[in-house]
Amino acid sequence: MKTKNHPPSTINHQPSLPSTIHHPPSTASHHPPFFIHESSYVDDNVEIGEGTKIWHFSHILSGAKIGKNCIIGQNVCVERDVTIGNRCKIQNNVSVYKGVTLEDEVFCGPSCVFTNVYNPRAFIERKHEFRPTLVKRGATIGANATIVCGITIGRYALIAAGAVVKKDVPDYAIVAGIPAKQVGWTCKCGTTLPFGRKESGVKGKGSKATCKYCGNEYVLEDGNLIVIKKK
């Protein structure tokens, strides 16, 4: 009987895989110490502090400086050379134009408006006429308020929703209306202080008030609110 010679097998046997697979070293970089949503644009030469979060559809332009632990909401524009301090909160639909400075812990409500030219015309270039606006530490700007350029908003001041602010606002003052007028005084915590009606303006003198919420005590002296006791 003849033996039939089978052709060599064309099946290549695969060698057994090793029990341990060695992955190549990761090329992924460490995550930055802040968060930027993928829909937002951040230009070159921008400083962003640790813990800050920038949410949907926002644009941070070159030269802007944003401090630590800030929250930048949806559809916010921070223009060139703007400085924003630490722990600020800027709600949706706010544009912070060149010439505006926000100190630490400033709150900007939804759709509040900053300006930087007092008398703009589309057909006249007035970039050399920008008027600086300073919002001091802890101040609150309510929703839809308008801040006319060239003024200073004092520490812990409170701008009511929809107000149009055209002049400087003292520390701890509450202003409301169009144009905005002072209607009272606020504690650092944001609670209205219980001064009498005659003392709510800037001319009160020697009157004292205690915050019902946190217990801080204040006195009015020559139109200035002074903290005399902190809890």
Rank of each mutant, 00 (worst) to 15 (best):
M1L: 13
K2H: 12
K4T: 13
H6M: 04
S9F: 10
T10W: 11
H13W: 08
H13F: 06
H13A: 14
L17F: 10
T20F: 08
I21P: 04
I21M: 11
H22K: 12
H23Q: 13
T27H: 01
A28E: 06
A28F: 05
S29W: 01
H30E: 05
H31V: 03
P32E: 07
F35L: 07
I36Y: 02
S40T: 08
V42Q: 04
D43G: 01
E47N: 11
I48Q: 01
I48C: 01
T52C: 00
K53D: 01
I54Y: 01
S58I: 11
H59P: 02
I60Y: 11
K68S: 09
I71L: 11
I72G: 11
Q74R: 11
V76G: 05
R80H: 15
N86R: 01
R87W: 06
C88T: 15
C88W: 02
C88A: 14
C88Y: 05
K89F: 07
I90A: 08
S95A: 13
S95R: 12
V96G: 03
Y97L: 13
K98P: 01
V100Q: 00
L102E: 03
E103P: 02
D104V: 01
D104M: 00
F107M: 13
C108Q: 11
C112A: 04
V113T: 15
V113M: 12
T115L: 12
V117R: 07
R126G: 13
K127V: 08
E129S: 11
E129Q: 13
E129T: 03
T133I: 11
L134N: 06
K136N: 12
R137L: 05
A139E: 05
A139G: 01
A139T: 03
T140A: 04
I141P: 00
A143W: 01
A145S: 01
I147M: 08
C149S: 13
C149D: 12
I151M: 02
T152Q: 07
T152P: 04
G154E: 03
Y156F: 15
A157D: 05
A157G: 13
I159D: 00
I159A: 02
A160M: 01
A161V: 02
A163K: 06
V164C: 04
V164E: 03
K166Y: 10
K166E: 14
K167F: 05
K167C: 07
D171A: 13
V175Q: 04
V175D: 03
A176D: 14
G177N: 07
P179Y: 04
A180Y: 12
V183Y: 10
K188Y: 11
T192E: 12
G196W: 00
G196M: 00
K198I: 07
E199L: 02
G201I: 06
V202E: 05
V202I: 14
K203Y: 10
K203E: 14
G204C: 07
K205Q: 14
S207G: 02
A209E: 06
A209C: 04
A209Q: 04
K212F: 04
K212G: 14
Y213H: 09
C214N: 12
N216M: 14
N216C: 06
L220R: 11
G223P: 08
G223K: 08
L225V: 12
L225C: 10
V227T: 15
V227E: 12
I228Q: 10
K229E: 14
K230T: 15
K231T: 10
